[in-house]
Amino acid sequence: MLAGFLDTLAGGGGLLTVPALMMSGIPPVAALATNKLQASTGTATASYLMIKNKKVSWLEIKPLMLFAFLGAAAGTVLIQFIDTQILSFVIPLVILLIGLYFLLAPTPNENSRQAKISPKNYQRLVVPSIGCYDGLFGPGTGSFFVLAGVSLNGRGFIDATAIAKPLNFATNMASLLVFLVAGQVIWVLGIIMLLGQIIGARLGSRCLFSIKVAYLRGLVVLMCFAMLVKYVLTL
């Protein structure tokens, strides 16, 4: 429930759930797969509320979701052939890098600015690349979509956060479908987590447009370093 709430606000819910699953003794690929089951529900809830409340345009987001879906599907197929010991090293490294970026980078503002790349390149290159990362590893994908929206697509921070929800939903669904075919999902655990995600996502969606950018940034940094410390202590 906490991950669903924080994921809707700051895009880092997987930074809580994936390391927590791995620290409970679940193999890395099964942890990623089970996380996708509950994460897809959380992002679906948040995406529905964003579109329903007209915070995101369906016509604008639909092609971006398609490219995000394709990128994630490719990454999830690839992860089936990667040594799980590599994941045990890469996931905490990714957590560290995301935390450092949000800690050291200039604080983004809520105003839109000029995009650094064309909408076509953003849609066909940036979005599927982040989707592929989500299929491969996953934690922090929502944060990457927010960062790309602000730094490359010229979005304001809140606007980029809202758009990141349906994109993250598309990547989660693509990965989940592949993991289901591969039989990697732990159903009982995933369903219990799923219920918490629904509650957390609804609460987070109500708070998103009333919370300050600095607080969102602080949440991501706090999650990253807290989970990194916990992960290292369990090794």
Rank of each mutant, 00 (worst) to 15 (best):
L9W: 00
A10W: 07
T17I: 12
V18P: 04
P19Q: 04
M22Q: 02
M23K: 02
G25C: 01
P27L: 02
P28M: 05
V29H: 08
L32F: 13
A33H: 02
K36V: 05
K36Y: 06
L37T: 13
Q38K: 09
A39K: 02
A44G: 06
Y48S: 14
Y48L: 15
L49M: 11
M50L: 14
I51Y: 13
K52S: 13
N53L: 14
K54P: 15
V56L: 04
S57G: 11
P63T: 06
P63N: 05
L64K: 11
M65W: 02
M65D: 07
M65K: 02
F69N: 09
L70V: 12
G71T: 00
A72C: 07
A74R: 01
G75W: 02
I79P: 11
Q80M: 14
F81L: 12
F81D: 07
F81M: 12
I82W: 06
D83A: 08
T84I: 13
T84Y: 15
Q85G: 15
Q85D: 13
L87F: 14
V90G: 07
V90H: 04
I91M: 08
I91W: 07
L93Y: 08
I95S: 00
L97K: 12
I98T: 04
G99Q: 06
L100R: 03
F102L: 08
L103V: 10
A105I: 07
A105P: 03
P106G: 12
P106T: 14
P106L: 10
N109V: 12
N109Y: 11
N111E: 13
R113N: 15
A115G: 07
P119S: 05
K120R: 10
Y122F: 08
Q123A: 07
V126P: 09
V127M: 03
S129V: 05
I130K: 00
D134H: 01
G135P: 08
L136Q: 08
L136W: 05
F137Y: 08
F137A: 06
G138R: 02
P139M: 06
P139A: 03
T141G: 04
F145P: 03
L147T: 13
G149W: 09
S151I: 08
L152M: 07
